[in-house]
Design a protein around this nucleic acid. Structure first.
Lengths: 362, 362
DNA sequence: GGGTGCGATGTTTACGTCAACATCGGGCGG
DNA sequence: CCGCCCGATGTTGACGTAAACATCGCACCC
């Protein structure tokens, strides 16, 4: 089947009938090989790679030379087995390429590294329990010390089969109370956006919402509605997108045609960009005819035209907190069952909001 | 430290003075524990998890029940040690949250999963050899069967210390000839963009380039220049950004003030968005006054105003090819030293390009 | 000059799993 | 009715590493 580069013993030991189920990976040299070449015991080789100080420089040199000559590198399976830890955390994400997700992933990876951990990443196709379950199985079949789940929207604690004793942190509020969670302060963020628009003089604020099965989207809808009711404003009919710019554009066309729409709060920046295009196509100006507020503060938000007023999420902080909470459980065996970190947001006012003009009268 | 669930011998074996260096992770139940509870040998437990058919249903049930009761899941370090493979590939990326990167990562993760592999992700701060080296060390210190390096711009084959026998694939052309590589067809893409603008009647095309240390950016610069020369057009001075929308905006301000600029080819879409803003701020219209072409075709490109004409990269295909080439080496021990996959691109014409008007004459 | 203590190195063993081989028991053919 | 064969399960050993313990040699001190 394949060329045995380093086989020195009788070939039948590894070839022959057992070839199919035999070990796959390149069986590179082991400590024993290095030890033999350097004329020391394998334990000395081990010491060289873990604590060089404990070995006499002269011996160390010999061992290092042997390592280099053989191209030795330690077998991590064996190390992990020995140590009982992989120094690896699992990360389950959905739609990884989305802005918020990729930034959170970046932060998680970075925070993990700063603690000496690596990240094993699985991207689930759909946020259903079935898919998330499969991802969990795949990761525990791999080797992880803990698990971070980012926005597994439709999965619920009841439906998710997690291995016993596996520390978990989630960034989806649906799991709050069941697992430690990190969540953006959706309510305050939404409130700031809506109140900003009302303060500018708009009679009410339309909402271009995210999909129903998304917990953050749902929270934003509720906060938007409550905020309007608190202020005694009429609550206009809800418009739903799917987070994509396309959906913002398509649903935005209807909003653009409705002269009563003077202010729109979009559940994310991508949909706001889609709405921008719909408004532009209808010959409407932002913010003169319609004010727009987004959510997330993606890097491009500042460079849309006009620059988008939006609620900035601190994805970086989310990622860091996720890792912190997870490693707290991993290293200290702490039970954080209902711990909940709320990440603050900040309204960034740019050029897409202004007092209303009389659209209907134009 | 923690409750010893499965400890049956003297507690001092694991507690006491050795706690600091003792195995960390939850040493959950092993096959032996399950076997004891089910009243079978550990080999039978092993058979239940690897080949249930070989065990009598009655026995199987007992074992499964014991597994469930103890919350057993196989120790993958031991499995990996036994099999010689982790079914995991390492992935080194730089600036993970960038559009192209996150989409490539997504595709790699997905392709890896379809082959039954998991992805270990490391995001390097800078693309320098030092950082990439550290990432490689971190990953091989972990457990991987192969390594994918995405755009490690400034690292070069000579400076990078890769473990012997570790299969590698890169998506950076700087490594072509040293490792199998997957690269977007920068030259053709650039050519299409420039020729599209020239065909519309522009006298020449300015270029808003990516950073000097980026190999794709360099290739685009060279292709742009060669293309202009081939057509006998003047080659205007080069303008450099750093891929960010901000840099596109800042350098774009100068372009906007130069009346000889009628067409700009931007090295990516983000910088094109920044340029849009600079042009808008100067009261210039796209494409009436200045035509703009981007590169990448990010999801938002279609929803900028006007929709951006751009060169679409197939990040998904890149990811798939990376994994294919890597696993070919991993599973077949093939030497692909100078294999090189070129991923085609496609010019997507939208609303940001048009024949030139006489800017200077306005 | 004979401990004595310490630094350097070797030996043993366990980590958890699974392939290979061993064993055991029952059904079936001769 | 005996023996053979096969299916089900048990036993042994090896994967590569590193902790724990053992050993060896040497310098230093009384």
């Amino acid at each position: 089947m394949r060329v045995m580069l380093t086989e020195d013993g009788p070939a039948t030991a590894r070839d022959g009938a057992t070839a199919v189920t035999a070990p796959r990976g390149r069986p590179g040299p082991s400590m024993a090989d290095v030890a033999a070449l350097a004329g020391v015991s394998s334990q000395t080789v081990s010491r060289v790679s873990t604590d060089p100080e404990k070995v006499r420089p002269q011996t160390r040199e010999r061992v290092l030379a042997a390592m280099a000559q053989l191209g030795y590198s330690p077998n991590n399976a064996a190390r992990a087995l020995r140590y009982g830890s992989f120094e690896t955390i699992g990360l389950i994400a959905h739609r990884l390429a989305r802005t918020g997700e990729s930034r959170t992933v970046e932060a998680v990876v970075e925070a993990a590294r700063s603690h000496g951990y690596t990240v094993s990443l699985v991207d689930v196709q759909s946020p259903s329990s079935t898919d998330v379950d499969a991802a969990v199985a795949r990761l525990t079949h791999q080797a992880i010390d803990g698990l971070v789940i980012i926005r597994a929207e439709t999965a619920t604690p009841a439906t998710l089969a997690l291995p016993a004793r596996l520390p978990v942190v989630v960034s989806d509020s649906r799991f709050i109370g069941h697992h430690p969670a990190v969540a953006t302060d959706q309510t305050t963020g939404t409130r700031q956006a809506v109140e900003h628009l009302l303060a500018l003089g708009h009679r009410t604020v339309h909402h271009l919402a995210g999909p129903e099965d998304s917990s953050p989207a749902q929270l934003r809808v509720e906060a938007w509605q409550r905020c309007l009711e608190d202020q005694g404003r009429p609550v206009p009919p809800l418009v739903r997108g799917d987070w994509s710019a396309r959906s913002g554009y398509e649903t935005g066309l209807a909003l653009a045609r409705d002269p009563s729409v003077t202010a729109v709060f979009c559940a994310n920046d991508e949909m706001a960009a889609g709405l921008y295009r719909a408004l532009h196509e209808q010959g409407l100006r932002v913010p003169d005819d319609v004010s727009v507020v987004g959510f997330d503060d993606i890097p491009l938000a500042e460079y849309l035209w006009p620059p988008l007023t939006t609620v900035a999420q601190d994805f970086h902080l989310i990622g860091r907190l996720l890792v912190d909470l997870l490693l707290q459980q991993v290293t200290e065996a702490t039970d954080l069952a209902d711990h909940r970190a709320l990440v603050p947001v900040e309204l960034v006012v740019r050029g897409s909001t202004a007092p209303p003009s009389d659209r209907a009268g134009r």
